[in-house]
């Protein structure tokens, strides 16, 4: 279920990125965390114990905004600005042996 963003809607941006395969538009100067928060109210990651989280401090302190960006895991999405064609994946808890 996609939860509505917890923020007011903005005009559509012109930078496109993929979040778990879905194309999302963001604005120049947005961080990846901003793009995630503007897109939906859903969890942007699940912890090792499977609890849902969203970005919390937006200034690089709490590390709750960690996501995979362009194949690199555990990136602080609040410290990285969006770029055209970025591929973002939300961490889904502890990986098991079968997963890469």
């Amino acid at each position: 279920m996609k939860i509505d963003s917890r923020f007011q809607a903005r005009p559509k941006g012109n930078i496109s990125l993929s979040i778990d395969g879905e194309i999302v538009f963001a604005h120049k100067g947005d961080t990846v965390a901003t793009a995630l928060l503007a897109d939906s109210g859903n969890a942007s990651r699940k912890t090792n114990k499977n609890s849902p989280r969203t970005p919390f401090c937006m200034m690089g302190v709490c590390f709750d905004c960690l996501v995979e960006i362009n194949g690199s895991p555990n990136e602080q999405s609040c410290m990285i600005q969006v770029e055209e064609g970025m591929v973002v994946k939300r961490p889904k808890g502890l990986r098991n042996y079968e997963q890469k």
């Binding site: 849902p52 989280r53 937006m58 200034m59």
Partner: peptide, 9 residues
């Protein structure tokens, strides 16, 4: 929980 943030954020 998702949806709880700092005011500063």
């Amino acid at each position: 929980l998702p949806g709880v943030m700092t005011a500063g954020a």
